Simulated assay, not measured.
Amino acid sequence: MERFRQTAYSMLTMVAALVSLLVVSACEHDFYETGDSELSYLHTDFVDARTNELGAFVSAKTDDGEELTLSPAVKEQWATRPDTTYRALLYYDRVEKGVTTSFALNPVLVLRPHLTSDIASVRTDPLGFESLWMSKNRKYLNLTLVLKSGQTDDKKAIQSLALVCDSIRKQASGGRKFYLRLCHSQNRVPEYYSKRVYTSIPLTGLTPNDVLCLDINTYKGVVRKEVVY
């Protein structure tokens, strides 16, 4: 339980900065093409991607368990640390003998649950919710969210996301039920257009029959999703 509760992102400013980057990244890539072109064979997967000693991505493991070597290595501005594993959305070409060419790696925000007491203020400004699913390897709960954004001269106007664990209760079945809330601060960012953002919740420490109960405040009201591990 303690392992699951760990707060790897203790500084919410880091989360806010990454949310800002995710919204920008979503604007930069449009990989859809009709017809029989190079991009017609593009694959997209959630991955745990690894950088080398120079901070360039050299390998990735998909949620389906496929090990990929990226050749040539890929340097992304948002990934600054060498010898580090990042959660990402990988756009890649055909795979031959485990080797592929990457078109892009976009960051995926990893949300680890905080205790309410760990966060100075908790906001649940509405956002858009599209989908939720457990990864095939059962390591992550993935969410597709939609944030409203727009241009502003206020450099301090940056949206932030966080995950709060309000309580944990034992169930008659013997498992535990985690009551979670997705927190979102619009923080004065204009709401002119919508952009899709992907996030992942690590499921480390969960055991069979554990349940995640996640509340998400959307523009249409609070949506509650329950997932049995």
Results as ranks from 00 to 15, higher is better:
Glu33Ile: 01
Leu70Arg: 03
Asp63Gly: 06
Leu89Glu: 11
Glu38Asp: 06
Gly65Met: 02
Leu115Asn: 08
Ala88Thr: 02
Arg112Thr: 15
Asp118Pro: 01
Val108Trp: 06
Lys155Glu: 13
Leu143Thr: 03
Val108Arg: 03
Ser37Thr: 10
Ser131Thr: 12
Pro126Tyr: 08
Leu89Asn: 08
Thr62His: 03
Leu109Asn: 05
Leu54Asn: 11
Arg50Gly: 01
Glu53Trp: 10
Ala120Asp: 12
Leu39Gln: 02
Asp166Pro: 00
Ala104Tyr: 05
Leu141Glu: 03
Asp83Phe: 08
Arg87Phe: 10
Thr51Ile: 02
Leu111Tyr: 10
His114Arg: 10
Ala162Gln: 09
Ser160Asp: 12
Leu90His: 09
Ala88Gly: 06
Asn142Ile: 12
Asp118Leu: 11
Asp125Ser: 13
Thr100Cys: 14
Cys165Ile: 06
Ala73Gln: 05
Asn106Trp: 07
Leu145Met: 13
Gln151Trp: 13
Val99Lys: 11
Thr34Asn: 02
Asp125Arg: 08
Pro82Tyr: 07
Pro72Glu: 02
Tyr91Gln: 05
Leu54Gln: 11
Lys155Tyr: 15
Lys61Ile: 11
Val58Arg: 01
Arg169Ala: 15
Tyr86Asn: 02
Leu68Pro: 01
Thr144Ala: 14
Leu143Ile: 05
Asp166Ile: 02
Tyr32Gly: 01
Pro82Cys: 07
Asp36Thr: 01
Leu111Pro: 06
Ser71His: 03
Asp125Asn: 14
Thr100Trp: 05
Leu70Trp: 06
Leu42Lys: 03
Ala56Leu: 04
Asp48Ser: 12
Leu141Arg: 03
Lys156Trp: 14
Ala73Asn: 03
Leu109Cys: 14
Lys155Asn: 11
Leu54Ser: 11
Leu90Gln: 01
Lys61Pro: 00
Leu147Asp: 06
Thr124Ala: 15
Ser37Lys: 00
Arg138Cys: 09
Asn137Leu: 04
Cys165Asn: 14
Pro72Ser: 03
Arg50Met: 10
Phe57Ser: 01
Ile168Glu: 13
Leu115Thr: 04
Ala88Asn: 02
Leu115Val: 00
Val47Cys: 09
Tyr32Gln: 04
Thr80Pro: 00
Pro126Gln: 07
Thr100Gly: 04
Phe103His: 12
Val58Gly: 00
Leu70Met: 09
Thr152Met: 09
Asp64His: 09
Glu67Ala: 10
Leu89Ala: 08
Thr85Lys: 10
Tyr140Asn: 07
Leu105Trp: 00
Glu33Asn: 02
Val108Glu: 04
Pro113Ala: 04
Asp153Trp: 12
Leu109Asp: 04
Asp153Gly: 15
Gly65Pro: 04
Thr34Phe: 10
Val58Ala: 01
Lys61Thr: 13
Thr84Gly: 02
Gly128Ala: 12
Glu130Pro: 05
Ala120Glu: 12
Phe103Ser: 08
Leu90Cys: 11
Trp133Gly: 06
Val146Thr: 14
Ser102Asn: 00
Val99Leu: 03
Pro107Gly: 09
Ser102Asp: 01
Glu96Thr: 13
Tyr41Leu: 06
Thr116Met: 12
Thr124Phe: 12
Ser149Glu: 13
Phe57Pro: 00
Ala56Gln: 10
Leu147Tyr: 13
Asp64Ile: 00
Val74Met: 13
Leu89Phe: 03
Asp153Leu: 15
